[in-house]
């Protein structure tokens, strides 16, 4: 799939998830039964246009209940999306990921950066955010919940906070205080860094990215590398906006399945899809499964 088509899919996905455009004018959020379903990506359910629910917000709501409710339903949905798509959810269906891609297209006063210094370490932060702010804090410190939404999530500020406060703040008696300015600061930081580097929030902070990352190795939709065709030119690694080397780790947890490497490969050694092409010396790295009979190895 070329990048233009992916952009269209992202646009349609964002629109479908936020199709209640009247909400922006009325200041009311949708209360339909479909809101009992969580979307696969990060999309605030307090966005006036949101038709469905945020999985991270819902997860925190269950874990902060007393007694704690095991979130079977949300976990089932996330497991389903993960097993089907892995982080292709980030690359195709996440509205906030798409917004960051659009931000990256804006010319930046200084030269665009590939990553921040300490990139490898910073990428582990998202696992801490998932374990700490999404799971542990809601379970242990009820007053702080929903910790991720409350203190970190820029999607809630952008999609819900800013439009509701600007358009309907007075009527809805929304009082802007230090918390709002803190969240605005986070949003501005994400917007500015998003202009400088590709998808900084996805790379470093998104708990959904952390949750879907391990599924890249086993999801139905994944990348295959044909070793017979690969000439180790390194072009795929050079064009990857997420700084993954698909010739070494085609199913890295950092890959969002944007497919830029597939388009750049001069020998068509990389392939994204569901079905296996057999007998081509295909490498499915990270799978941890060896099956000599089919020419697939770890």
């Amino acid at each position: 799939m070329d990048n233009k088509l992916r952009g269209r899919v992202q646009f349609v996905a964002a629109l479908v998830q936020n199709a209640d455009l009247r909400g922006f004018f009325t200041g009311r959020i949708d209360q339909g039964a479909q809101k009992a379903v969580c979307v696969p990506g990060l999309n605030c359910y307090s966005c006036p246009g949101a038709l469905m629910s945020c999985p991270i917000g819902s997860l925190q709501a269950f874990l902060s209940a007393r007694p704690v409710k095991v979130p079977y339903y949300v976990a089932g949905l996330l497991l389903f999306f993960g097993a089907l798509l892995g982080r292709a959810v980030c690359g195709f269906l996440c509205p906030f990921g798409w917004i960051q891609e659009l931000l990256h297209k804006i010319p930046f006063p200084r030269k665009k950066l590939g990553t921040f210094p300490g990139d490898r370490l910073l990428r582990r932060l998202k696992y801490l955010v998932l374990a700490g702010l999404v799971v542990l804090v809601p379970m242990l410190l009820t007053d702080w919940t929903p910790a991720f939404c409350k203190y970190l999530c820029p999607a809630g500020t952008l999609e819900g906070g800013v439009p509701l406060v600007l358009l309907h703040g007075e009527r809805l008696h929304l009082e802007v205080g230090p918390l709002f300015f803190w969240k605005l600061f986070i949003l501005v930081a994400v917007v500015l860094s998003g202009m400088a580097i590709y998808r900084p929030f996805c790379k470093y902070l998104c708990p959904l990215g952390a949750l879907y990352a391990p599924f890249n190795r086993v999801a139905l939709y994944r990348m295959r590398l044909s070793e017979d065709r690969c000439v180790a030119c390194g072009k795929c690694a050079r064009v990857c906006p997420m700084q993954v080397d698909p010739s070494k780790t085609p199913n890295s947890g950092e890959c969002i399945r944007c497919g830029v490497c597939v388009g750049a490969c001069p020998t068509k050694a990389l392939r994204l899809g569901v079905r296996e092409k057999q007998g081509q010396g295909i490498r499915d790295k990270g799978q941890g499964i060896r099956d000599k009979g089919q020419g697939i190895r770890d």
Binding site: A36, M52, F62, G160, F180
Partner: peptide, 16 residues
């Protein structure tokens, strides 16, 4: 439960 949470504006989520 998901619907009950999502049908009201989550003030913490939007920062107010």
């Amino acid at each position: 439960d998901v619907l009950a949470k999502a049908a009201r504006v989550c003030l913490e989520c939007i920062g107010v």
